[in-house]
Design a protein around this nucleic acid. Structure first.
Ligand SMILES: [Zn+2]
Ligand SMILES: [Zn+2]
Ligand SMILES: [Zn+2]
Ligand SMILES: [Zn+2]
Lengths: 158, 158
DNA sequence: TCAGAAAATGATATATTATAACATTTCATC
DNA sequence: GATGAAATGTTATAATATATCATTTTCTGA
């Protein structure tokens, strides 16, 4: 069993640092501007392995001394999601940093209802099952939402 | 290819009638009261094969001459979803009538972005892929959300 | 280098979705 | 019919999201 969720006590600064580096690359490739505000929002999202709501981001920015309004946050989120740097978790109205923004994928999200952590999987079995089911009913896929709530291994065993 | 979506011009009164009959049975079995309000909300949801928002229901009830407040609608929706008579579509913040409320299932929802119709599938390939993926990462499933947006066969071909 | 255009952000207002809290009514049971 | 539980009514407000227009920043090309 390979745990998708990060180990407790892992070097989280490294997660953040690596995510920032990837984001830079993607923005560069797409000729998109990774502005201060976008970087701040992106970094805040990566401060945990949980999904973060727009208003939590707003509060965090306010706490940092910025005076920021909802549209500013939503714009940053729109930018980040369109580039695939961040995914929206529909069942939580919240946002989660992608750790493989460099390649297109249909992601699936495991959401622990105990610790609140989220993990993204890119599981071809699931993707293929969805694609096959769509094909069998003549449905043309534009986007998928696969969100699985339950207990992560840590929370189930401790 | 079997189309999940109902044929144009099908006898929709029959859909509604059959859904009501099933709902009666489920409520009966569960010793739950299918009150006027719950029946009205349920029927309104079944007026189309689209997902309906809480405030659309509120407006429809108001148009019918009822003076209804949000909590009334949300309570009816909570009741209906807990009994499995209605499913919530997370990516639309909207509600959709289940046509097999008599048996437990992990449903998947196809949502046409052109005509707005929704179809529920209960596809074992998809369910099994999700269960298998969860097992392989030690995750204990409590609930799943599988929503697939795109074009239904009618909309893709016409 | 600077004018003009485009992109991003600021600011204000408001729309949409959802729930908390307490009062009243309805309904099953005795 | 009295009683308690369930359902609904009522009021207020919380949480999530967007529309619109003003201003600032950045890019582009003369
Ligand atoms: Zn980390
Ligand atoms: Zn957990
Ligand atoms: Zn029908
Ligand atoms: Zn369609």
């Amino acid at each position: 069993m390979s745990d998708l969720f990060p180990k407790k006590g892992h070097d989280h600064d490294r997660c953040v640092h690596s995510a920032l580096a990837q984001a830079e690359k993607v923005c560069d490739r797409e000729n998109a501007r990774f502005t201060d505000m976008r970087r701040k929002v992106f970094t805040l999202i990566w401060q945990s392995h949980k999904a973060v709501t727009a208003y939590e981001l707003l509060d965090a920015l306010t706490a940092e001394g910025q005076r920021v309004q909802p549209p500013t946050v939503y714009r940053a989120l729109e930018f980040l999601t369109e580039l695939g740097l961040v995914h929206r978790i529909e069942s939580l109205n919240a946002y989660f940093g992608c750790d493989r923004p460099d390649c297109e994928h249909l992601g699936q999200y495991f959401i622990c209802t105990d610790c609140g952590r989220v993990a993204e999987a890119v599981n071809e079995d699931m993707s293929n099952a969805v694609r096959k089911a769509a094909r069998s009913v003549g449905f043309t896929i534009q986007a998928t939402t696969v969100e699985i709530k339950g207990l992560c291994h840590d929370c189930a065993t401790h």
